[in-house]
Design a protein around this nucleic acid. Structure first.
Lengths: 215, 215
DNA sequence: TCAATAGTGTCTGTTAGACATTATGGA
DNA sequence: TCCATAATGTCTAACAGACACTATTGA
């Protein structure tokens, strides 16, 4: 008799699609949809297992993979295991097309197994919280991108509108991107220059404290 | 024969002591010191188990307990289990005295089991990262505190000096604290008014984007 | 009295956001 | 040509940090 799995590895794959963050869902048992998940293999390491599950679901390695945490607390999971370790996988819109399953906007999620609902919420929250301190936005974009696309990605992650001139000023000051000698025309209007992610100097001197405590 | 533990619950208890963040270490096997940890009980939930381990180590419930993540990846752990779920427990200096074990400054940690070293670093990092978006500082302080003590706590968490007048201005604007009708004299100098944590209105209108990406 | 800490008012340089303007392509 | 988008300069209000000053206690 095979040993029951100790825990599962659950992957919340996120991609910027249609101006929203979308999650990859697969068909689970019955008609119900579920996050991609799998059991760790014997002696397989945590991160390695998560990469494997993500790669299988996406058809290619994600641009980034970060652990969200362990989930259990009695919430139901399709596996029956009482522990799941959740990972957020970041995927570009281009890569998203290659995945098997449906990309569903985070704002319009269908019914999921209890634990996976909690996992999804936590993953989205974790990614959003890291947006301003890790290059999350760049991992949701192809190597070459316009500044408008970058700003839209930040707006999607931070869930608020940003001011164009201010955004570019701050971006310039942070020395995060470099222009490449290429332009892209999207329908009408002046073509936009393409940029690539190329962080240069550590930005010292964070000014002030921002108390941002939920009441 | 007892079933081997699936995973362990490891607790990184943090307290502000001597102007530094200190971690609670206990005597492990041999002379080696280790984080408090335990195995989950049968059918015990994740958070409940972590609370139990923390309470046992501290002699009282911590002011806050948050999950840091799951750790494994082949790093050694005293239990032999290949997975540990880590929690950060926040404790006031007063509560810290009641704990069994040594409080060691995070800057001067002794040799720990590999996995626990990774867990400790991640827990400290997680708590620091949340300092400006969750009331972490208040959970390291007693219910009534001086603004100087609050500022010192923030400085300890953010690991940088803050400007007194600016700190108080921002604190006032955030409406996080309320003065109570009590003063405390610490040695010489004018006695400081005591305050309590009493967040009132959601602080809307986060200005700007702060790109803070490690190069 | 001096020393030490609390608490606050004012000034100044920096920066975010508003607004306007130019640039450059497609329809 | 008109319209849409890119990109940037200028102005202003908000804010962080410096500094100075008063307040209030213990030594």
């Amino acid at each position: 008799m095979p040993k029951a799995a100790l825990y599962t590895l659950d992957v919340v794959a996120l991609a910027p699609l249609g101006g929203e963050l979308a999650v990859l869902l697969q068909r689970g048992a019955g008609a119900r949809r579920a996050l991609p998940w799998g059991a760790p293999r014997d002696r397989e390491r945590l991160t390695a297992g998560a990469h494997r599950v993500a790669r299988t679901a996406l058809g290619a390695p994600p641009a980034a993979l970060e652990q969200v945490g362990a989930f259990g607390d009695g919430l139901r999971h399709p596996s029956g295991a009482d522990l799941s370790v959740a990972f957020a996988a970041l995927v570009t819109a281009e890569q998203a097309a290659a995945a098997e399953g449906d990309w569903v906007p985070t704002g319009a999620l269908p019914a999921l197994p209890e634990r996976q609902r909690a996992i999804t919420a936590a993953a989205v929250e974790a990614v959003r919280a890291r947006a301003d301190r890790a290059p999350v936005a760049f991992q949701l974009l192809p190597a070459a991108f316009t500044l408008s696309a970058l700003q839209e990605t930040y707006e999607l992650l931070l869930d608020r509108r940003l001011h164009k001139a201010s955004f570019r000023r701050a971006l310039h000051a942070a020395r995060l991107v470099q222009p490449i000698d290429e332009w892209r025309s999207e329908g009408r209007g002046r073509p936009a220059q393409l940029f690539r992610y190329a962080p240069r100097k550590r930005r010292r001197g964070q000014r002030g404290v921002r108390f941002d405590v939920p009441t």
